[in-house]
């Protein structure tokens, strides 16, 4: 899997040398900062600050950020013709997909790490954040984000138009997100529960976001990532026989 590393570092370099990625990063940090501060304002003289404020915002925000980070990844390779060259390089198709996924996840991890450091501010100004809850919420949103990125990657593999890829992944992520309000469209409570189990929110808002680390949630996100990457690999592979 030598190719994974090479692809990973190329994409990573791509993020750090592209003004586009810096714009996304700035928007990401701006919004995260906004939600962080507004939560702090609300907590003053009320409760300890909620360390899950940023993760909870991101559970919605990643619907938009994940497609922005992934929509170019494979669609542009196809459009620029470099995909043909990648597929004739001595690396497997899975190495290409995994390398690209890991770099998107890595970039997201860096952004997340910056916001996680804000907890230090909370401790220093005496806002008593529950650090255990912070750990759970950040592990959760890290996996959650990975799952969003893997969904985005599938659409990027599916089409050579960035716009189509971005739009379709946003729509899909939005559907996957709607867990807590599933009752608005489904009347049967057991069906609602089943459907909620299939959503991203169903494995975040009532577990990681409140400080509970559940093995099944980890399996869900890891499983979703695995399944999506598998499908993306199959799609890229299909270029060979389409």
């Amino acid at each position: 899997m030598n190719g994974v590393g090479v692809i990973f570092w190329r994409e990573m370099r791509g993020y750090f040398t592209s003004p586009y990625a810096y714009l996304i990063a700035a928007a990401f940090l701006l919004l995260a900062g906004f939600f962080f501060v507004s939560n702090l304002w609300l907590s003053v003289e009320q409760t300890p600050a909620d360390p899950a404020a940023i993760p909870e915002f991101l559970s919605f925000g990643m619907i938009f950020f994940a497609p922005l980070l992934t929509m170019r990844m494979l669609a542009e390779e196809t459009r620029e013709g470099t995909m043909e060259l990648l597929l004739t390089a001595p690396v497997s198709d899975s190495a290409i997909i995994i390398g690209k996924f890991l770099s998107a996840w890595g970039f997201y991890t860096i952004l997340l790490g910056i916001t996680a450091s804000y907890q230090i501010i909370l401790v220093n100004i005496g806002a008593f954040p529950d650090l255990g809850k912070a750990v759970a919420a950040y592990i959760g949103i890290w996996l959650y984000g990975g799952a969003c990125l893997s969904v985005g990657l599938v659409y990027s593999a599916l089409t050579d138009s960035q716009i189509v890829a971005g739009f379709l992944s946003m729509a899909t992520l939005f559907l996957l997100y709607l867990g807590d309000n599933i009752g608005l469209i489904v009347a049967d409570v057991e069906l609602a529960r089943l459907l909620r189990t299939l959503t991203l929110q169903g494995h975040f808002s009532t577990s990681f976001a409140v400080g509970i680390f559940r093995a099944e949630d980890v399996v869900f996100f890891a499983g979703l990532i695995t399944a999506m990457l598998f499908i993306a690999i199959r799609i890229v592979e299909s270029r060979r026989w389409r």
Partner: peptide
């Protein structure tokens, strides 16, 4: 291999 359309990464 060089495909018909030269495959390039413009930002590199």
């Amino acid at each position: 291999y060089m495909p018909e359309r030269v495959p390039l990464y413009p930002d590199m």
